[in-house]
């Protein structure tokens, strides 16, 4: 694990998301109703919709373009649709959101 302090929990709207730009594409960081935080790839596998712009409900997000629903925990598409988005570990420490960037910073070896 290679934790990086991303932002304060309050920077992410409740039931909303913000994005983190990385060398391997955008990561969407979601905050649920219970102020849990999840990070996934921002790209919908269907036609590339930005998932961070979707409606967050329970522990799922609905893609803003054609309403595919993804579990934020497993990254799996729900219901009849088939697809998978990458998920990344997060944790909250003293109100700060920490993101595990092991898979996101290929250039930098974890020290």
């Amino acid at each position: 694990m290679n934790w990086i302090d991303i932002c304060s929990i309050t920077d992410i709207p409740l039931r909303g998301a913000r994005i983190v730009k990385t060398a391997v594409g955008c990561v969407a960081v979601f905050r649920t109703d219970d102020s849990e935080v999840f990070a996934t790839s921002d790209r919908c596998p269907h036609k590339g919709g930005p998932l961070s712009e979707g409606i967050v409900h329970g522990k799922a997000v609905t893609c803003p373009l054609h309403n595919w629903v993804f579990s934020l925990e497993t990254g799996e598409a729900q219901g009849a649709d088939e697809g998978q988005i990458a998920t990344f570990a997060t944790q909250i420490e003293d109100g700060r959101v920490m993101l595990d960037v092991t898979e996101l910073t290929p250039g930098v070896a974890a020290e």
Binding site: I6, V20, C26
Partner: peptide, 14 residues
């Protein structure tokens, strides 16, 4: 503010 990414890891990596 909210229209910007919260963080840009590309820069930190560089």
């Amino acid at each position: 503010e909210t229209y910007q990414p919260v963080a840009k890891l590309t820069l930190e990596a560089a």
